[in-house]
Design a binder for these strands. Sequence first.
RNA 1: GUCCCCAUCGUCUAGUGGUUAGGACACCGGCCUUUCACGCCGGCAACAGGGGUUCGAAUCCCCUUGGGGACGCCA
Length: 477
Amino acid sequence: MSVRTRFAPSPTGVLHLGGLRTALYNWLYARRHGGEFLLRIEDTDRQRSSPEHIRALVEALQRFGLDPDEEPLLQSSRVERHREVAHQLLESGFAYHCYCTPDELAAMREEQRARGEVPRYDGRWRDNTGPPPAGVKPVIRFRRPDTEEVVVRDWLHGDVRYLDSQLDDLVLLRADGSPTYHLSCVVDDEDMGVRQVIRGDDHLNNTPRQLQLIQALGWTAPEYCHLPLLLAPDGRKLSKRDEATDALHYLRAGYLPDAVLNYLARLGWSHGDREVFTIEELISRFGRDGLGASASRLDPDKLIWINQQHMKTAAVEVLCESLESQLESIGLNPEDGPPLEEVAEAWRERAETLAGVAEAARWAFSHEIELDEKAARKVLRPVVREPLAAVRAALAALAEWTAADIHACIAETAESLGIGFGKLGQPLRVAVTGGGVSPPIDTTLYLAGRARTLERLDVALGYIDARIAAAESAAQG
RNA sequence: GUCCCCAUCGUCUAGUGGUUAGGACACCGGCCUUUCACGCCGGCAACAGGGGUUCGAAUCCCCUUGGGGACGCCA
């Protein structure tokens, strides 16, 4: 069985997470089986589609690395072919002209609803033999075949049966000659050679109609897989207005693309007890076997955890790329500080996202630091004045500014003063970073650089002196 | 309303007639530790309800309930 999958979004907004997951599954399946993954932009709704949206969509997919194997196909470029097929259906008797006006149809549905019936086209123009009414542009409707039932064979749901009587004659070509979704979709999938249709559950009910169309055209139906929907953390439907629905939001927030993909892959698919996968591992393991049929909620905590796991093992260049933009986005200059690789290595195991790294590393890139009031009061006390002054002198005299030398220097100073390493570490940390949390103290000082370190130690010493003075005057007064 | 889909810890899930119902996130303890993390160890916690089928059901069938989707000259 040849494998050709496709992702067919309508460019009506940003790429949302559900769409990204659908794209991912299609992409993975194609990769896994040595097939092709295609991208088709369903832009036939001109009112809601725009070139910007199309570009954003293609770009978003690209940023996650889900590149299609062929040029993306714009559905709008294919209307001639769609019309051709509609007329072919007309000639073979599988379609007919319907002269109902939109108002007339609305009224018909209204009546049917009022009577408690399922709103459905009643076929009033199905077998018309008389002359067409003047002044009304007709639509072309599909004459659905009179079979008993239509069976959708689905990877996840097995055989889903639809009674033919539940389906109605759908519009193929609008009064203005433009094709509708069902027609375009079926024709394009056929012409693109798509063999596996992996899409959202919301299309399951569309499938029997498309199957009938395919049958009327004498084509071979692809395999179908209707994926369960993604739900918001609270179990409700994902709202498009929610920022967290936008796939690119996660990149902006400092998540690694592969981590987001890993998380999404595990939502609705599993492989034993494994949680963390590289893209390569996903490609070699992904398949219909592990797919689940029930809807799943987004869990921000788990995404964070997956991201941490990926941060620990990602190539440092990947980390740097994201870190650079994260630093810029909080107004810091990536050039004005230690090498990004060193920063990334120092924090890859102690931050949740690259945004977190940038924030935590702020003191290594800015010239001014803010002393955290609480930490300073707790740590920068009069008793550490002498030890701190001693390390400052030792550090100033250090021949090489490396983490190892810094470590030895601090250790020696501590020993000569008869105090523990830890007694010196925390004051140094608060003095240099302004806060009580940072990578190991030797790394921290190394990252800060000698100039910044000495400068800030002087500031801290001044702070302590002021404290001593204030305490003395309080004692005297 | 009609049709369709879904249902195991709070969440993601493993499980396909016989398991002390497993793992992961989160949460709570503890260990490690110069801070913070990482890591390690342990704990809490689930088969929606009711009927069948069977020697035996989380697993198969039916009903109920709950959640979701579709019923357009949108895609």
